[in-house]
């Protein structure tokens, strides 16, 4: 049995611990917001947090989550109240939307580490997340906007 918490809830699963965490999240837990894009940590669509750290779940064996706290896009906020989600709405970021879960999960770690990120910080944190529709300019603006919301307070 493999035990960890997902979005604050304890789960115990009878799965092969070498299965990539991505597929355990998607297929065993039914949380399909986390996406498959490449299977080799190239595109970032599968980004989740393990104990607050951004992880490419397509190459992380499920065992890596054992005893830890996993957060997926479904756990970012229950009601789109996270400043990043609000900023993404304001900037009308998504097009097809497929990569956006991963983009948001990477951005969430960035904002926690660097509450006022520079463009270079954004480049560094977000370059592992591919968007084929080309929403990068809006993602950049939305991250800055979210940072402003947090700085002004009242966003949490």
């Amino acid at each position: 049995m493999l035990g960890f918490s997902v979005n604050g809830k304890r789960v115990d699963l009878d799965v092969d611990p070498s299965t990539p965490l991505l597929w355990v999240i998607r297929e065993h837990l039914g949380l399909t917001g986390t996406k498959y894009g490449c299977g080799m940590a190239q595109c970032g669509a599968c980004t989740v947090h393990i104990n607050g750290e951004a992880v490419r779940s397509c190459v992380a064996p499920a065992s890596r989550a054992s005893g830890k706290a996993v957060t997926t896009i479904e756990g970012l906020s229950p009601d789109l109240s996270n400043p990043l989600q609000r900023a993404w709405l304001e900037e009308d970021v998504p097009q097809c939307g497929y990569c956006q879960s991963g983009q948001l999960m990477s951005a969430a770690v960035l904002l926690r580490e660097k509450p006022s990120p520079t463009d270079d910080d954004i480049d560094e944190a977000m370059t592992g997340n591919i968007c084929r529709c080309g929403t990068y300019p809006r993602i950049r603006r939305a991250i800055h906007r979210a940072a402003e919301m947090v700085a002004k307070g009242g966003a949490q």
Binding site: L31, T32, G33, T34, L80, L89, P94, Y98
Partner: peptide
Amino acid sequence: IKRLDTPEKLNGKAVFGIDVKLLGMLT
């Protein structure tokens, strides 16, 4: 006008083909 499909693309709820799941479905 802001896009109507944005909210569900920010919380993992939007259903793409790869997300469809049926009872007893195999892969």
